[in-house]
Design a protein around this nucleic acid. Structure first.
Lengths: 198, 198
DNA sequence: GCAATTTTTGATCGGTTAATTAAATTTTAA
DNA sequence: TTAAAATTTAATTAACCGATCAAAAATTGC
């Protein structure tokens, strides 16, 4: 109820949020300030405070947006596949595709996760994500379901394998150079995962 | 030549460096200040400025130390093995062991890599490490040498596979919880890598 | 069209921080 | 003993930041 905002208010909040992502890409979390965000969005600093309780709430919303966008992107492609094996491949391809196509979002996500902290001063990257992170769970479920349906070998552990695949997939997030051939890496990763699940 | 420091100076620099690692673990890079480091080391802030030109030089030295320590730890264990296959396994085990046994070093490393920036304002995590990072190169060389010696299958690409293995291995760095069984993860990772190199 | 409400501005307040430096003191080494 | 090196203390400079708020402007509902 408290969150029923007007149309214009929602639009403004989204504008500020997008500006935050831009500024994070430009100068990073350490130098992030409301003044910089305001300048990027071409509004006054006071307006940010009007729409967000404080800087932390703004960052929290930006984080939620970024996580949601990635999840939606991947889920969208996974659910198009009926076959469980194709779902697994879609998951991997979508993960890499998102990193390639939405670099700004990934950079902003990294900046927040590795810098922002909870009220208890615990950095987000130390929070146990594998227990709650919907992306982790999605992958783990695909792997487990494949085993249940006897499509995959029962020769691997869904949880450990999910961590492994996610680790291998997100590594490419950090390697956006000319020399890194993401197309080729995707093929290799898919070949390896195919081997694992047999 | 300019770096020829006295014994006491070297000891002090190392003390400051260790204090920096401690403070990074306690409060993170964002809140890091010379005052906090001085307090941790139980010295005056001025003394830090006396031994390090500026904050950036201190961070740079801390980063070099952390990278060197990890490399040394892993290399130490790899070179004990004569067999190339055992070298590969030693590399993976050592990578995970280091993350488990030197959590403070890894946290400090993460804090610096994901926060500090070069003079050109480029974050360290965006620098193309796979081209220069000695750890990457070491793994890639093991994989390539194994193929050359026909011990490994020629069915994978050393570079892509090195990225994959490093990604899967470093993922566990972020998952230090009670629910995460690093022992079990190591076994799974080793099984998978064994499958890849056949 | 007018009054109430929402949105926006922009200046200001109180606080933090880094880096530097000068001067005084202590420690070290030869 | 003494000169150089190491260390403390404390003051300075100068920048910046997040939050606040009163007032202005824009929008909405009636």
């Amino acid at each position: 109820m408290t969150k029923e905002k007007t149309f214009i208010s929602e639009a403004r909040r989204e504008q500020i949020l997008k500006a935050t992502i831009d500024v994070l890409n430009d100068i990073g979390y350490v130098k992030l300030s409301l003044a910089k965000i305001a300048k990027q969005a071409k509004i006054s600093t006071g307006l940010i405070s009007y729409h967000f309780a404080d800087k932390e709430e703004l960052i929290q919303h930006t984080l939620n947006y970024l996580i949601g966008a990635q999840l939606e992107f991947i889920e969208e492609r996974v659910k198009k596949e009926a076959d469980i094996y194709q779902q697994l491949m879609a998951y991997i391809k979508a993960t890499l595709a998102y990193q390639d196509e939405h670099v700004e979002n990934n950079v902003a996500l990294i900046e927040i996760i590795f810098n922002a902290r909870t009220e208890d001063n615990i950095p987000y990257y130390k929070l146990n994500e594998e227990e709650e992170d919907p992306l982790y769970l999605r992958l783990e479920n695909i792997l487990a379901e494949g085993q249940r349906k006897k499509v995959f070998s029962s020769d691997f552990q869904p949880k450990a394998t999910a961590i492994l695949i996610n680790g291998a997939a997100s590594e490419s997030m950090l390697l956006q150079s000319e020399s890194f051939d993401i197309e080729n890496y995707q093929q290799e990763l898919i070949r390896v995962v195919a081997k694992i699940v047999k």
